[in-house]
Design a protein around this nucleic acid. Structure first.
Lengths: 336, 336
DNA sequence: AGCCAAGCTGTTAACGATACCAACCAGAAG
DNA sequence: CTTCTGGTTGGTATCGTTAACAGCTTGGCT
């Protein structure tokens, strides 16, 4: 049953050589006579031998493991899925494989998964850090594990990050809605303790302040995590005595939820573009970012670090784009 | 810089004990005097020691590695993302971590990634096999790597699979459209060499045949992989002398593409439900399956195998559901 | 012939952890 | 006082691979 896999020793016996010679052949070392190499290769095929990278890595303790780890909140978020896909593509190009884990926004879970990854000697980690301090990564970092954050910065940790200007993008979007005559503008996001949502929320408040609009706590919903929660939040806001005439949804998942509850005449802007945005009625105005570019950039940065880049940590800010499709341009009660 | 991580030897020296004692403490073996254990734990904390699971696994060659591998076509496909998420959840519950790889529908790439995974001694693999023979997995299987397919069966390989009745679901959906008065019905799918699309295509053809409708090759498009390709295929069909009045899209990605090109009066059914299906005009009729249930079931099956289940391979068929939302009920020219 | 270089192959000792067994100690039993 | 038991600790070998070095041919050159 649990047939044990053949080792170099088995191959060596089969081919009548030493394990060292097998090692050389398996690793493409040229210093082996063609005839010998052929015999070894035949034995490899006959036994179905495959090099054991666990043993190899132990022996080569100071070489790279060629494994990276990716930690996301939740892969079912299309943004994170795009990140995962792009990161894996780069890893593959660089000859590495990728471990994936989800934190589900739970810092303890994130910690556990990261510990399991570092115990396997990953060369580096790509993180979308959950809310909370990431000081716990210091020891891993000190021992040489490279870390890059994507989409979010990690409070308490001095590492590279690839993000967008969430603050500016939302401020611009809210100003855009204000310019279309809205003053009662709702905001739905996850907890501001997640860096990205903190920034987005700040951008929202800054835009209101610039416009001389007092922020109404009833129109700001934090800690919203799922589509149904977002839908409920929208329903709640619309039931207010003085309901919002415009709404900003903090990410794709929340936008989907909000859209199931939002009437067509509510002005609407979503953070993150999505496939059918243009097909809805009205077509949805979005703040678009490019998750593939973010993740590709983050992965390249990570591999540069892994291969010895020791320059000071930097934060790369990628552009966003406000795509006006209609829902964000619905005129409000104060339209000129 | 590349500070080397502390080993048990370092901890042992620090605590004034042998590595064996450190090993016992680190692994929670009770046969250590409380005072000694406390000294070791202090040393562990002081040095920031973490057990090296690479070395551990080499020593414990016949134990499980607690790593599984997941191979999907492409994680950006929401169906695959849901599968990945669910599989990782189960892995975590079972104390394992998960490697992820994408084949991008390329059998060679799939092979390479799987080889890299098995070289790391994964306990098992969850696969959505690309088109082509998977005979190459035989040796890995013979050496004890457990394999479960999800969403698709693997030609040439005798393993567990968790799938839906693609044939039946599409046949039913097409019959449903026929019942609403359509006879010119288009089909867009990826290559029928991928098991799932082969089944869906067969279902489509079977429904036409039952209805006494001759299949028109101009209305069947195989090998469509991306949204834009799907849109182009729709545009092409609509430009025909005798265009289709109804269309079936073979998965979510193709549906999204098709929808950008399909006019609102074209009857439309998509395989896979999606978040905004009910918000489109007209709301989209879909064949829904439950990717989380599929993947959860597949992962449980895999872990059962890993833990010694040696019963004959089985194929689990999960239900689908035709959700009538409107687009599939648009009456055709032959409606009663 | 004698010597050296080049090419090929093998031996040994690790990498970091743990299974297995032996050794030690205290106190209890005889 | 010896023997034994049980609790605790350490020594040694090993997992599969490879770095470092040593040894053996062969052939060319002087």
């Amino acid at each position: 049953m649990a047939a044990t896999r053949p080792t170099m020793k088995d191959v060596a016996a089969e081919a009548g050589v030493s394990t060292m010679t097998v090692s050389r052949v398996v690793n493409g070392d040229s210093a082996v006579a063609p005839g010998t190499a052929a015999r070894v290769e035949a034995a490899v095929r006959k036994l179905g031998y495959q090099r054991d990278d666990v043993a190899r890595q132990l022996r080569r303790t100071h070489e790279l493991s060629q494994i990276i780890g990716l930690l996301v909140d939740d892969v079912t978020d299309p943004f994170m899925a795009a990140v995962a896909s792009a990161a894996e593509d780069v890893a593959r190009q660089r000859g590495s494989i990728m471990l994936i884990g989800s934190s589900r926004a739970d810092l303890r879970r994130e910690r556990e998964v990261i510990a399991a990854f570092t115990a396997r000697r990953v060369d580096g980690l790509i993180l979308t850090p959950a809310a909370g301090s990431h000081r716990f990564l210091r020891p891993a970092q000190a021992q040489g594990t490279k870390i890059v954050c994507v989409d979010r910065a990690a409070p308490g940790l001095d590492v590279d990050a690839v993000v967008v200007d969430n603050f500016g993008a939302v401020r611009e979007a809210v100003a855009h809605v204000v310019a279309h005559g809205h003053r009662r503008i709702g905001y739905i996001g996850d907890t501001p303790r997640i860096w990205t949502f903190g920034e987005r929320r700040r951008g929202y408040l800054a835009a209101l302040e610039s416009a001389g609009i007092a922020a109404d706590p009833a129109l700001v919903r934090d800690g919203v995590r799922t589509g149904p929660e977002a839908a409920a939040a929208v329903t709640g806001m619309l039931a207010l005595h003085d309901p919002p005439t415009a709404l900003l949804a903090g990410n794709e998942l929340l936008a989907f939820g909000a859209l199931t509850a939002a009437p067509g005449d509510l002005a609407f802007v979503a953070f993150d573009d999505f496939a059918l945005a243009a097909r809805l009625t009205p077509p949805v105005t979005v703040i678009a970012q490019d998750p593939v570019a973010l993740a590709t950039s983050a992965a390249h940065l990570l591999f540069a670090r892994i291969h010895g880049d020791v320059s000071p940590p930097r934060t790369v800010v990628m552009p966003t784009r406000l795509i006006r499709r209609g829902s964000g341009e619905i005129p409000g009660p104060f339209a000129a």
